[in-house]
Design a protein around this nucleic acid. Structure first.
Length: 337
DNA sequence: AACGATTTCAACCGCGCATAT
DNA sequence: GATATGCGCGGTTGAAATCGT
């Protein structure tokens, strides 16, 4: 089946549109509608192919185009819809009035994709990435450089945006990676020490600071250990399609970090990191609990650790990691100092 | 200030599907 | 049913803008 190439016809202009061309196109469509895109250029006096005219109109000149930055709500919608639909940009655009599929696609590729990657989430599957964890384990000094005093100031209510949540997720992954590494390699030098004058997770304001509304409930386990169960009930959060819960051992001295995006119940269990509160309180140094039973159940072993060259993919470039590290460790966290 | 690296985004390209002939 | 045509979609490109040194 033959097809006449759309824009290969002789003499048809390509490239950026001039103001004059825009005006001609707008004027013609306002007077006559676009009708047949193929016939439009001649009728409008444009030396363009119909395809180029359609693209210019739908992506730029249409009067109902919404300009400006994407709002948090729009970001949330895109992420949620992408997790359901994949790269169905036109379908996603259908749920965002005034936004074009091209604009959404560009915004995804330049912003949202990176944001998810920074959270340790695969932007294709929307599931946690694990291929980079042992790379992080090689960078414990970066963690020590992070300003945890500001992170751990828990007496302020702070609304977190997606970027901050991304940092929290990455931090969680880093701690998780180091814990796993320690577990598998007791002689490893990658133990993590964090300085703080605050009792980290024993305060509900930490949870509130995640910008989430929760229900708290106490339960007793088989050993009569009291647990504080915190259920994430946020509905306006970009990741509300994922159920996340935070469990605090109120009786014992273990606290679990929230896994913001558990891929599955199994993964969620395996990725819990326990930090001993007494370590925090006693010497103001936070140590990862290397005897952590949940991480000892981890399926990660040294056998799974791959060479850097095997791990790195097209998006895990030097600049990619540089960006993550810099944003995670150098920027001030949005917690009050 | 200059230059190279990186990012952004408008525009293009090729393909698949639907419809017309 | 075969072929031709048009449209829309998703991936890719490359110039311009921005950033970093």
């Amino acid at each position: 089946m033959g097809r006449s190439p759309c824009c290969d016809e002789n003499g048809l202009k390509k490239g950026p549109w001039t103001q004059e061309e825009d005006e001609k196109l707008i004027d013609h469509i306002q007077k006559h509608g676009h009708g047949s895109w193929r016939a439009l250029p001649k009728q409008a006096g444009l030396n363009r192919c119909g395809k180029s005219c359609r693209l210019r109109w739908t992506n730029y000149l249409r009067p109902d185009i919404k300009r400006g930055n994407f709002t948090e709500e729009e970001e949330q919608t895109i992420i949620n819809l992408h997790s359901l639909l994949g790269n169905k940009w036109s379908s996603i655009a259908g749920n965002l009035p005034g936004r074009t599929d091209n604009e959404i696609k560009n915004y995804w590729n330049t912003h949202l994709r990176k944001k998810l990657l920074q959270m340790g989430i695969d932007p294709v599957t929307h599931r946690p990435r694990t291929d980079h964890l042992n790379v992080l384990a090689a960078l414990p000094q970066l963690m020590a450089a992070a300003n945890f005093n500001s992170l751990l100031n828990l007496n302020q209510n702070v609304q977190l945006d997606a970027t901050t949540l991304a940092k929290a997720q990455l931090l969680h992954n880093m701690i998780q990676a180091l814990s796993i590494n320690n577990n598998n390699n007791p002689s490893s030098s990658s133990s993590l020490t964090m300085q703080s004058n605050n009792n980290l997770f024993g305060q509900s304001s930490y949870l509130e600071s995640l910008g989430q509304s929760q229900n708290f409930s106490h339960i007793l386990d088989d050993n009569n250990d009291e647990h504080l169960i915190v259920k994430n009930q946020t509905t306006a959060h970009p990741f509300d399609s994922f159920s996340s819960s935070i469990q605090i051992d109120a009786h014992d001295d273990h606290i679990s970090l929230p896994l913001l995006v558990p891929a599955s119940p199994e993964e969620s269990k395996q990725s819990q990191v326990m930090i001993k509160k007494k370590d925090i309180a006693n010497d103001h140094h936070h140590h990862l609990d290397t005897s952590n039973p949940s991480s000892s159940n981890s399926t990660f072993t040294q056998d799974h650790i791959q060479p850097w060259s095997d791990i790195i993919d097209e998006e895990a470039s030097d600049s990619y990691w540089k960006e993550i590290i810099e944003q995670t460790c150098s920027e001030p966290w949005p917690f009050p100092q």
